[in-house]
Simulated assay, not measured.
Amino acid sequence: MSQAQEAIPAPEDAALAIVARDVNVFYGVKQALFDVDLDIVQNEVTALIGPSGCGKSTFLRCINRMNDVIEGCRVEGSIELDGQDIYHRDVDVVQLRARIGMVFQKPNPFPKSIFDNVAYGPKIHGIARNKTELQDLVEDSLKRAGLWNEVADRLAEPGTGLSGGQQQRLCIARAIAVRPELILMDEPCSALDPIATARIEELIDDLRQNYTIVIVTHSMQQAARVSQKTAFFHLGNLVEYGTTDAIFTSPTDKRTEDYITGRFG
Score class of each variant (00 low, 15 high):
residue 86 I to D: 09
residue 215 I to Q: 01
residue 222 Q to V: 04
residue 74 R to P: 07
residue 238 L to C: 04
residue 49 I to Q: 07
residue 124 I to Q: 15
residue 186 D to I: 01
residue 222 Q to T: 04
residue 3 Q to M: 15
residue 175 A to H: 02
residue 80 E to H: 10
residue 121 G to K: 05
residue 207 L to F: 01
residue 87 Y to L: 07
residue 64 N to G: 12
residue 92 D to T: 04
residue 223 A to H: 03
residue 17 A to R: 13
residue 247 I to F: 07
residue 216 V to D: 01
residue 117 N to L: 03
residue 235 L to D: 13
residue 67 N to P: 06
residue 106 K to N: 12
residue 108 N to F: 02
residue 262 G to Q: 13
residue 224 A to E: 15
residue 96 L to R: 03
residue 67 N to L: 15
residue 174 R to G: 11
residue 217 T to A: 09
residue 15 A to W: 07
residue 94 V to M: 15
residue 173 A to F: 11
residue 28 G to P: 09
residue 242 G to R: 01
residue 141 S to T: 01
residue 191 A to F: 03
residue 260 I to V: 10
residue 97 R to M: 02
residue 19 V to S: 09
residue 120 Y to N: 11
residue 62 C to R: 05
residue 1 M to E: 13
residue 230 T to I: 07
residue 171 C to F: 02
residue 170 L to Q: 10
residue 250 S to N: 13
residue 237 N to R: 00
residue 125 H to F: 15
residue 129 R to H: 11
residue 131 K to A: 14
residue 264 F to V: 02
residue 108 N to Q: 13
residue 98 A to V: 05
residue 191 A to D: 07
residue 96 L to N: 14
residue 5 Q to G: 08
residue 106 K to H: 11
residue 78 S to A: 10
residue 89 R to N: 10
residue 51 P to Y: 02
residue 100 I to Y: 04
residue 239 V to I: 15
residue 38 L to T: 08
residue 133 E to T: 01
residue 240 E to P: 09
residue 135 Q to S: 15
residue 240 E to Y: 09
residue 161 G to W: 12
residue 149 N to Q: 15
residue 71 E to R: 06
residue 73 C to E: 02
residue 51 P to R: 04
residue 22 D to W: 07
residue 212 T to D: 04
residue 62 C to G: 01
residue 253 D to R: 14
residue 82 D to T: 15
residue 207 L to T: 05
residue 195 I to G: 06
residue 265 G to T: 06
residue 182 L to K: 05
residue 9 P to C: 06
residue 142 L to S: 07
residue 16 L to T: 08
residue 173 A to S: 12
residue 69 V to T: 05
residue 249 T to Q: 12
